[in-house]
């Protein structure tokens, strides 16, 4: 599902013009980005948490060349699903 399909889906649910949905969606995303870049966790009840995690620095070794590289620490966005969502997904047949 791409962005357009998502917009259509929301518009159908709310019976709203797509243009407006598009605008609201853009605003929502910008709020998300704003908070995440400030390092704030976004807790979405029944869906999951979006949070920023710090990956520590590490030394990686190229297996073929044995070149050792120091990889610096970094901040990544991670999403952890809530148990409610997980349970729902359990009903999904695998493959």
């Amino acid at each position: 599902m791409n962005h357009k399909e998502l917009t259509n889906s929301i518009a159908a649910k709310l019976d709203m013009p797509k243009a407006e949905v598009e605008k609201l969606l853009g605003d929502t995303v910008s709020i998300f980005v704003e908070h995440l870049s400030a390092g704030t966790t976004i807790g979405l009840q029944g869906f999951g948490n979006m949070e920023v995690k710090k990956k520590e620095e590490r030394i990686s070794v190229h297996p073929a060349t044995q070149v050792r590289t120091l990889v610096p620490p970094k901040l990544v966005v991670s999403f952890k699903q809530s148990n409610i969502l997980k349970d729902k997904l359990k009903e999904l047949p695998h493959e």
């Binding site: 995440l36 870049s37 390092g39 920023v52 030394i59 070149v67 050792r68 590289t69 120091l70 990889v71 610096p72 620490p73 970094k74 901040l75 990544v76 966005v77």
Partner: peptide, 13 residues
């Protein structure tokens, strides 16, 4: 999100 650490680069030891 990674802005605070963006200046860091991987270094070959």
């Amino acid at each position: 999100v990674n802005k605070p650490f963006a200046h860091l680069e991987t270094v070959v030891l």
